[in-house]
C-alpha cells in the first residue's frame, strides 16, 4: 500500500520532478541521436544524453560517478566521436552538403 501522504510531501515531489525531467532528457536525447540524419547532430545529441546521465548520477548522490561520467564519456569518448565524425567525408553523410 502506497503511503498517500508521501505524494504530497514537497521533498518527494522535488525528487520526482528532477528524476522525471532527467528521464525525459535522457530518453529524448537518445531518441534524437538515433533519429537524426546528420552525423554531427547525432554526436552532439549523444553528448547531451551523456550529460543528462551524469546529472542523474549526481541527483542519486553518486557525484563521483557523475564526474567520472563527464570526464570520460563527454570529455574523452564524446570528443573523440566528434573528431572521428569530422574526419568522415561530408558528402557521404549528408544529402544537402553544406560547406
Amino acid at each position: 500500500m502506497i503511503d498517500l501522504a508521501q505524494f504530497y510531501d514537497i521533498r518527494f515531489l522535488m525528487d520526482l520532478g528532477a528524476f522525471s525531467i532527467l528521464a525525459v532528457l535522457i530518453l529524448g536525447f537518445s531518441i534524437l541521436t538515433v533519429w537524426s540524419s546528420n552525423m554531427v547532430h547525432a554526436a552532439l545529441y549523444l553528448l547531451g544524453a551523456f550529460a543528462s546521465v551524469a546529472m542523474l548520477y549526481v541527483s542519486l548522490n553518486a557525484s563521483f560517478v557523475g564526474v567520472v561520467q563527464v570526464l570520460v564519456y563527454i570529455g574523452a569518448v564524446g570528443v573523440l566521436i566528434l573528431f572521428a565524425v569530422m574526419l568522415t567525408r561530408r558528402t557521404l553523410v549528408e544529402e544537402e552538403s553544406h560547406g
Binding site: 563521483f64 564526474v67 570528443v79 566528434l82
Partner: peptide
C-alpha cells in the same frame, strides 16, 4: 567532496562550444 575533479572534468567541456561554433 570531489570539486577538483569536477572542475577538471568540466574544463574539458570547453572545447565543445568552440567545436559547435566552428562546425
Amino acid at each position: 567532496d570531489i570539486s577538483a575533479l569536477y572542475v577538471e572534468a568540466v574544463l574539458s567541456l570547453m572545447a565543445i562550444g568552440a567545436f559547435m561554433a566552428g562546425y
